[in-house]
Amino acid sequence: MIKKLLTLPLLILVASFSFGQNATLKGVVKFKGEAPKPRLISMKADRQCDAMHGGKPVTAEDVVVNQNGTLKWVFVYVKEGVKGKYSPPAEPVVLDQQGCLYHPHVFGIMVGQKLEVRNSDPLLHNVHSTPKKNKPFNIGQPVKGMKSYYTFTVPEVMVPFKCDVHPWMSAYAGVLDHPFFSVTDDKGEFEIKNLPPGTYTIEAWHEKLGTQTQTITVKAGETKSIEFTFERKK
């Protein structure tokens, strides 16, 4: 009897810590109004880049409105309310330079997590990161297959990346000291998993359209959906 009495709360405790307790935050970022015409990037001045795209212009990734009227490349993260410490995963985040473009355009990374910047083009790229709180980073990668590693030491939203040789190339990294972030995809959707129950301020960040915040409360085991809507600034 005593044994039973003891095991029950223990079971609940174990279960709640492993999966039951944490919530999932899902959602979509919508774009209201007429989608702007995508800006074209001409790579004519660098013949090698131009050739990789068959001489066709490439669309810029600054404002990408998906087919279903949602917005791509929005960084959604928990701005306030996270308690406790989280250690970064061992595997690095990869920022690839391919076809004279950054892949991905927007990404999240944890403080202390390795960022691998890779050059998949047979030409010089230079990775010029200009954070405000972290240490700036400016390094040349003249040859295909080169990799550089970098770690951030302080949370910072967002850290811009630029290639000075191909000024149209840009990427943004959201640096956080917890793993609760996500980037919207081709359907405008995002998902933040394993969020402990509590009240949080969620921010959605877009490089051109600014930021929006919502305060939400999640309960243990809940899957919550929220929605952001951005508008074209005039």
Binding site: L124, N126, N138, I139, G140, P142, V143, G145, M146, S148
Partner: peptide, 9 residues
């Protein structure tokens, strides 16, 4: 000179 290639900087 990572990978045996001198860096431009």
């Amino acid at each position: 000179a990572e990978g045996g290639i001198l860096k431009p900087e």
